[in-house]
Write a protein that binds this DNA or RNA. Structure first.
Lengths: 198, 198
DNA sequence: TTGAATATATACCACACAGTATATAGTTTT
DNA sequence: AAAACTATATACTGTGTGGTATATATTCAA
């Protein structure tokens, strides 16, 4: 069974994760966190060394959620084209998916931590690399199974795809308009069926 | 001639603009600003009502710099295709351009201010709309002069272009890798010459 | 060059910040 | 059920925060 502290730790992380994601590392104060959790600083500092460790755990929590959702979204589909369709479908409703975590963690933390927090910044970079790797894997399988043809190596194409997706995420976030997601995903669907599917 | 206060105001803004852009609104303290300017709080508060007004002026300063650079980049070219080439050329070295202001103001402020500062957030949105409008204008002229053909209305295509560009900017920022800019711009050049140029 | 107006510096305020030492409450283990 | 251990609450520290009232320079107009 899980110990009390483990449950408290988990509770703190999941409660705190959207707050850090929304307001950033410096923009989030310990009192924000005690307010949200209903716990005191004693409880929080008993479970986390300091604010930074907690922020890192919070990002990892959101990041893992995202990566797991992507895994689930890509698994179970035998064909690479179907997988890519699932991927674009996932990002078509990405705003809904990220709503409960307070926006896209990759974008928010990646930009926020850029000049402010080395650890968080490199954690965001790592998540980007992981996602690109997942997409590249799909593309590699597609090439191997003679399903698709690529003008560039799989990883580069994956980066290109993710750049467009993340651009839509950024624009939707900045402009508060989900049309960016919808239009970009529609474009990608056409791109995939016209340019790379055999 | 400009009054002393006007010069001081300008000096404060240009000194402070990259700091706000790098560290965000909450991440920038008044003492950061007194340190950087060599002035005291008395001087700063004599020229700006409060921190928020200063942050807003700082963003407007960076934003105007960007918009003016875009105007200069697009002006003087008679053909829409040449203008689009200039545009992609500009963003190929966007990291160098934004270096002195501490990164892309649209991305940094747009993301940072999202849940934290209404005024800054809507200022960033406004800048986005302005840039999209400029690109749309180029496209409209291209269509009118029978230079290009568009699958969707000019503004929508402009938004689509800018989404990809801003995606590259976001990815280059998060991953600290300018290849995203280079590859995306290369892709856009191909897209333009293959898909929309007659 | 002097007097009025303006611009900057100094010294301060109340409050919020991250973090901690210690007391108390709660949970396990025996 | 009691003892030993663990987890949370309380109360506090020193420092930094945005902001301001006022004194002192500095600039400008006559």
């Amino acid at each position: 069974m899980t110990t009390k502290a483990e449950r408290t730790t988990a509770y703190i992380i999941e409660t705190v994760a959207p707050i850090f994601n929304k307001h950033g590392y410096v923009g989030t104060s310990m009192s924000d966190l005690t307010d949200a959790t209903g716990l005191t600083k004693g409880a929080i500092y008993g479970n986390f060394e300091n604010k930074e460790a907690l922020a890192l755990a919070a990002f990892e929590y959101n990041s893992t959620k995202l990566l797991m959702a992507l895994d689930e979204c890509l698994s179970g589909e035998p064909s690479a084209l179907k997988q890519l369709g699932k991927l674009t479908g996932f990002y078509r409703h990405y705003d809904e998916f990220t709503d409960e975590m307070g926006g896209c963690p990759v974008l928010n933390v990646g930009v926020d931590a850029n000049f402010n927090n080395r650890q968080l910044a490199s954690a965001a970079r790592e998540t980007v690399r992981t996602i690109e790797g997942k997409i590249a894997l799909v593309l590699e399988n597609g090439v191997r199974n003679n399903e698709i043809k690529l003008p560039v190596p799989p990883l580069q194409f994956a980066k290109q795809l993710f750049t467009m997706i993340q651009g839509a995420v950024a624009m939707a976030t900045i402009s508060n308009d989900r049309k960016y997601l919808i239009n970009t995903v529609a474009y990608l669907d056409v791109l995939i069926s016209r340019e790379i599917s055999k």
